[in-house]
């Protein structure tokens, strides 16, 4: 196993050197037009994916497609490096985007959104083939979508089906999400063998619980929204949901106390960045390096989308710089 990660992390570390540096971001920010922004961008490591978006008449849709393609390509590449146990662990790292996509898909179907609108919001980075997600997005209800997803043979298909059944029984969207989270994290924890990945998942579960406690504050029977696997136990979660901040650890308290949901989200993302960075540093022969790389790549893509929009609509540099700080 150690040798698997020596090879995998060697490749990932080289890929990390191709991420856009702060200096390059400054150059992109200082570009005088959208065309110049694209030109500068196509001179770097994203050139291969940017071919269609640099042609004349191309707009933000082409840029978004190119950035999504880049992220998808790299996530799949990282996933493909593993064999046996390492493939299973890298699958857990990449499946994070499956969880996000499944929630986006379910919310879209529940709200009766069009297949196109749902597909646009998906992040092509998980273990599900994108075509399967697209096919599921045209389903009339969650159970039909679950049937389509189960055909892909991905473990999360079964978890989605269980969550869809929970929703069918209560018709409550929260029941669907809690069931999906519980199923996903139980599967992820059983697949994670290395301590660094377990710690990373634990932090993710804690933050998810802190967010959940924030949202359900004052609701009856809060224990059913609790997901196991983090440092926060169920009784502390129930106290937290009841408004008792002392139940939260020093790390989680700021998420719970943040005045707005956006600020809580920002703190939560910073805590996850820190946890991923620690996982990469503390376990050099483990999956933490892959988790940190994909997280950095995701942030890079988010920043590029933001700068692209800013340049396309002519937003002042200072406003863009402020927004980038929150990306």
């Amino acid at each position: 196993m150690a040798n698997d990660y020596a090879y995998i992390n060697g490749r990932i570390r080289v890929m990390r050197t191709e991420l856009i540096t702060e200096r390059s971001f400054d150059e992109l920010l200082s570009s005088t037009s959208y065309a110049e922004f694209l030109r500068l961008l196509s001179e770097g490591s994203l050139a291969e994916d940017l071919r269609d978006s640099t042609s004349q008449n191309s707009g933000l849709n082409e840029l978004d497609a190119a950035l999504s393609r880049n992220f998808h390509r790299l996530a799949q590449k990282v996933h493909s490096f593993g064999k046996g146990e390492s493939a299973q662990e890298l699958g857990v790292v990449v499946a994070k985007w499956d969880l996000i996509n499944l929630k986006t898909l379910a919310r879209g179907i529940m709200k009766g959104r069009s297949s196109e609108a749902i597909t646009e919001a998906l992040i092509p980075g998980g273990t599900f083939p994108f075509e399967v997600l697209k096919a599921a997005s045209s389903s009339s209800d969650l159970l039909a979508a679950a049937t389509t997803l189960s055909a892909a043979g991905v473990p999360l298909g079964r978890i989605f089906r269980d969550a869809a059944q929970a929703f069918a029984a209560s018709n409550d969207a929260m029941d669907f999400e809690v069931s999906l989270d519980k199923g996903f994290y139980a599967w992820a924890r059983s697949s994670a063998k290395s301590n660094s990945l377990k710690r990373l998942l634990g932090r993710e579960i804690d933050l998810r619980n802190a967010f959940s406690a924030r949202q359900i504050k004052g609701q009856a029977n809060p224990g059913r929204f609790f997901v196991e696997g983090g440092n926060l136990n169920e009784s502390e979660f129930v106290r937290l949901a009841g408004g008792d901040v002392t139940a939260a650890t020093a790390i989680l308290a700021p998420v719970f106390e943040a005045p707005t949901l956006e600020e809580a989200d920002l703190i939560s993302r910073k805590l996850m960045d820190e946890a991923a960075s620690n996982a990469a540093l503390s376990d050099t022969l483990g999956p933490g390096v892959a988790a940190e790389f994909l997280r950095r790549k995701e942030i890079e893509i988010a920043k590029l989308r933001l700068i692209g929009r800013g340049k396309f609509y002519g937003v002042p540099i200072e406003s863009l710089r402020k927004e980038l700080g929150n990306a």
């Binding site: 040798n3 020596a6 060697g10 080289v14």
Partner: peptide, 11 residues
């Protein structure tokens, strides 16, 4: 040389 070789092959 085992892990060094593996990492070098990756690079």
């Amino acid at each position: 040389q085992g892990p060094i070789g593996a990492a070098a092959a990756g690079v």
